[in-house]
């Protein structure tokens, strides 16, 4: 071959790696990289539908109310309590609960997030079930805690235990209570916005809609582009308002195009965003958490 191109070998280009490791290239050690396998982050399987129905004692559950419902939308929390009690759940609320830590975790402050997560793990240590009326906070406790404590085996064990007990509201209704028809009534046309974490982290896709379909007097219409994010994303909505608003504009346009009078979702974060956008346009469309729609039962209507 003509010419003399400088010959170096792969071990030279990989030297930054080798240098950080005295004896052996980490290449040879890392047969099982810690967190690039999602296998260790897969949450426990949800209970089989109807699992609880055969049991005689009513299911005991703790409510994790979420900050946004506690502080901004307390009536949603009230509806959650009423629906769960109506379905026979022995429900309690630990009054010293605060935040699951998701805003900190999402912003990269995982040490601080762990501080709050530890409180949650302690608070719900003895719970049989923890019901969370938010796909996002539920995903935090069910999925992301496992990432948050990945380097702390003792805490990870506790996190795994909690993970197996955490259910998002609609998921709890369908998977644990086996509820198909909550005996609810609502008059109007509704469309459903699936929140991203509920859909993609909690893998809850059809449950809320099947519950909505069982509500008498409610007509459910499809939302175009339903599975596209509304642009909330927590701090994202403040950090990059122009992008968040662009995403919101599409969502609002799609919601309006359905002709529905009510927009239903399982996350008040999304509903604060979409509701805020609708309200800015002086739209008459109401935004409701699923629990609020299920709250009215036949008896209270008659």
């Amino acid at each position: 071959m003509p010419g003399r191109i400088r010959a170096i070998s792969w071990s030279q280009i990989l030297s930054p790696v080798a240098a950080s490791n005295t004896t052996q290239s980490p290449l040879r050690q890392s047969r099982l990289p810690r967190s690039c396998l999602s296998a260790n982050l897969t949450p426990a399987d949800p209970a089989q539908p109807g699992e609880r129905l055969s049991s005689n004692s009513p299911p005991k559950a703790d409510l994790f109310v979420t900050c946004i419902i506690d502080q901004l939308y307390p009536q949603v929390g009230v509806s959650v309590v009423r629906v769960l009690r109506r379905l026979g759940v022995d429900l309690s609320f630990q009054e010293d609960q605060t935040c699951c830590g998701q805003p900190l975790y999402n912003a990269g402050y995982s040490k601080k997030a762990r501080t709050l997560a530890r409180r949650v793990l302690d608070t719900f240590e003895d719970s049989e079930y923890v019901v969370v009326p938010s796909g996002s906070c539920a995903a935090m406790m069910r999925v992301f805690y496992l990432d948050l404590f990945r380097d702390d085996p003792a805490m990870l064990k506790q996190a795994e235990l909690l993970s197996s007990k955490v259910y998002e509201f609609s998921q709890f209704l369908t998977s644990v209570l086996g509820a198909e028809d909550t005996g609810s009534t609502y008059s109007g046309t509704a469309t459903y916005h699936p929140s991203c974490h509920l859909l993609r982290e909690m893998k809850v896709r059809d449950e809320p809609q099947s519950l909505l379909r069982s509500v008498s007097g409610l007509e459910l219409t499809d939302l175009p582009g339903a599975e596209t994010c509304c642009g909330f994303g927590g701090a994202f909505s403040i950090k990059f308002p122009h992008i968040s608003e662009g995403m919101l504009a599409d969502k609002v346009e799609n919601v309006v195009s359905t002709g529905a009078d009510t927009l239903v979702s399982c996350d008040m974060g999304c509903l604060m965003q979409i509701g805020g956008g609708l309200s800015r346009q002086d739209s008459e469309i109401k935004v409701r958490h699923l629990a609020q729609v299920l709250d009215q039962d036949h008896s209270s209507n008659s």
Binding site: V65, I69, D70, Q71, L72, Y73, P74, G77, V78, V81, R82, R85, R86, F93, E95, S237, I238, P241, E245, L248, A249, M272, Q273, G275, G276, G277, S279, R280
Partner: peptide, 29 residues
């Protein structure tokens, strides 16, 4: 102000959920 560029914002309600719980819900339905 970054939120309210294109979105309305709910006001802080008088009571939080935990206030309502203590007052009305704790003792059962």
């Amino acid at each position: 102000s970054r939120w309210t560029r294109m979105r309305d914002l709910p006001e802080l309600p008088k009571e939080t959920f935990r206030d309502i719980w203590k007052k009305d819900l704790k003792e059962g339905p």
